[in-house]
Simulated assay, not measured.
Amino acid sequence: MNAFKIPESVLVVIHTPQLEVLLIERTDNPGFWQSVTGSRDTPDEPLLQTAMREVMEETGITADAGQFVDWAVSNIYEIYPAWRRRYAPGVTHNTEHVFSLCVPQGTSVRLSPREHTAWQWLPCLEAADLCFSPSNAEALLMLPKFIA
């Protein structure tokens, strides 16, 4: 694993067929709710592999590659100054690739306690209002379009 985070990541919107969305609360920022996110482990790690790994690490949900939907949407955003120390000097922006994963209603969640403290299932519009990340909120608002 690299000493610095790679500024290329995935955002995975986990949802049920009824459009309930899983949100998880960050350990390092109570009140910061989000979908699953995470950076590539290596520059050549396939983004789908990153998505599968992050979902498993953060939620305990195991899913096959065919269950993920690559939205072919990328967001470039400025990394919050408080988190820039995790990246190589001079890195200020991250490219985030959006995926979704549909799971059955009632899917159990097992959080990584070092990353997240709580989880909840919410209707997608309510979840979008709770997300701290603008790109995450936007993805939740776009969810109905991508599963139609």
Rank of each mutant, 00 (worst) to 15 (best):
A3P: 10
P7N: 12
E8L: 10
L11D: 12
V12G: 06
H15C: 01
T16C: 03
T16G: 01
Q18F: 01
L19N: 11
E20M: 12
E20L: 09
I24V: 12
D28Q: 14
Q34C: 07
Q34T: 10
V36P: 07
G38A: 05
G38W: 10
R40Y: 02
D41Y: 04
D41I: 00
T42V: 05
P43K: 05
D44H: 09
A51V: 03
V55D: 04
E57F: 00
E58F: 01
E58R: 13
E58S: 08
T59E: 01
G60S: 06
I61H: 05
I61P: 06
A63I: 05
D64C: 06
A65M: 06
A65Y: 02
G66T: 01
Q67Y: 00
Q67C: 04
F68P: 02
D70W: 07
W71A: 08
W71G: 10
A72Y: 11
S74Y: 05
I76Y: 05
Y77P: 00
E78T: 13
A82I: 11
A88S: 14
A88D: 13
P89V: 02
V91W: 05
H93R: 14
N94I: 12
E96N: 14
F99C: 09
V103M: 09
P104G: 05
P104E: 08
P104I: 00
G106F: 06
G106C: 06
R110M: 11
S112T: 09
S112Q: 13
P113M: 01
R114A: 14
T117V: 12
W119L: 03
P123H: 04
L125C: 08
E126Q: 15
E126I: 06
A127E: 08
D129T: 07
D129Y: 02
L130Q: 15
F132G: 15
F132Q: 13
S135F: 14
A137D: 08
L143K: 09
P144T: 03
